[in-house]
């Protein structure tokens, strides 16, 4: 198997070999013990949770700055996945190996990030900026419209006559996303087993979250973003170009979604034009759960949703998982309407 995956895996094993025993973590009889199943679900849940969190940050940033639930955000991420698969197909990336394979994954990540960032910026420019002074409801309707357009673009895109899209046979059918990064275990800590894919999720999401925190806390742009969120008129009076700061927020939120969607596709190996709805719903719930507008809240909410989903799939039943997730959302909204980390009151001084 001469694939990017195999080579990247060897690379990672070489790097991580010191850190933990590289052993398949099966019990002596080859059956997973209850404890091991739990650990496995926990890792899967956390990995998916980190992906959800990265998407949730896009919701929460945009909400924080213009009080809009950007319903198009999940669908934007879906198009990022379609772009990534198109690149995989066009470059024959499934056959890439070694350093080339790692480079391929990096290329996908950054292409999707720039694409989703740019697209999100454009959506703001075309669909939201003209409505800055309009009611929040008009803005919301515009977001729902943008979502429909993106979904239909995805449906059209999936019908392109490329091998990776099954020759365009059925545009609506889910597409296989090649496992460029393998699912073999590379690291065992106690009875928690990590695949290369789990590590990829961490390697992408954690640095991005740290970078975003630094940006928002310490850079001039980050401070301007917070200033615009807290008092846009005062920000204008300071000479801050409010529309430009809002545009930057859309770009950054979209780019994070682009990274997330590539990791999601590599992790779950299937994409479809409807994935934006599912990812967007999870991420939106995560953002509300954590306290919408609050960045650490979005991460906490994402992790919780990821773990709850994965545990519910295992211990309840997969078909009940959506009900469990929404049940939790309802409970939170009833008992803590501002979310887990949200401010109790919206201060408007």
């Amino acid at each position: 198997m001469l694939r990017a995956a195999a080579a990247a895996e060897n690379l990672a094993i070489a790097v991580l070999g010191q850190a933990g025993a590289v052993l398949p973590a099966f019990g002596a009889d080859g059956q997973l013990s209850g404890q091991e199943v739990f650990s496995q679900q926990l890792v899967t849940g956390l990995s998916n949770g980190m992906i959800i969190a990265l998407i949730a940050i896009g919701y929460t940033m945009v909400y924080g700055i213009i009080e809009l639930i950007n319903f198009a955000h999940g669908d934007l991420c879906m198009l990022g996945a379609f772009l990534a698969l198109t690149i995989v197909g066009a470059l024959g990336m499934a056959e890439w190996s070694g350093v080339g394979g790692v480079g391929g994954v990096v290329l996908l990540l950054f292409s999707a990030a720039v694409f989703c960032g740019g697209l999100n910026w454009s959506i703001d420019r075309l669909a939201y900026r003209p409505l800055r002074k309009a009611s929040k409801l008009s803005l919301l309707v515009s977001a729902i419209g943008a979502s429909f357009i993106l979904v239909n673009l995805g449906l059209f895109w999936g019908g392109l006559p490329m091998d990776v899209f099954a020759g365009g046979g059925s545009s609506a059918a889910p597409k296989d996303f090649p496992a460029l990064v393998s699912n073999r275990d590379v690291l065992t800590l106690g009875d928690v087993r990590w695949t290369l894919n789990d590590l990829l999720v961490l390697a992408v999401t954690v640095p991005l979250m740290v970078a975003l925190t630094v940006l928002v806390k310490f850079t001039k742009l980050g401070k301007a973003m917070r200033a615009v969120a807290q008092n846009p008129t005062a920000a204008q009076l300071m000479g801050i170009d409010v529309d430009r700061v809002i545009g930057s927020t859309f770009f950054i939120g979209g780019a994070l979604g682009g990274f997330a969607t590539v990791v999601y596709s590599l992790y779950n190996n299937t994409i479809s034009f409807q994935m934006g709805y599912r990812m967007g719903m999870d991420a939106f719930i995560a953002a509300v759960l954590g306290g919408i507008g609050n960045l650490p809240g979005a991460v906490l909410g994402g992790l919780l949703i990821g773990v709850v989903r994965s545990m519910s799939d295992q211990y309840v039943e997969a078909r009940w998982t959506n009900a469990v997730v929404f049940g939790i959302l309802i409970l939170i909204l009833v008992f803590r309407p501002s979310g887990l980390l949200g401010a109790k009151l919206r201060e408007k001084v």
Binding site: A224, R226, A227, Q230, N231, T233, A234, A235, L237, E347
Partner: peptide, 14 residues
């Protein structure tokens, strides 16, 4: 129209 959740210093920087 102070930025309520920016520090005093950050307000001045803005």
């Amino acid at each position: 129209r102070i930025f309520p959740r920016l520090t005093v210093r950050e307000n001045l920087e803005m």
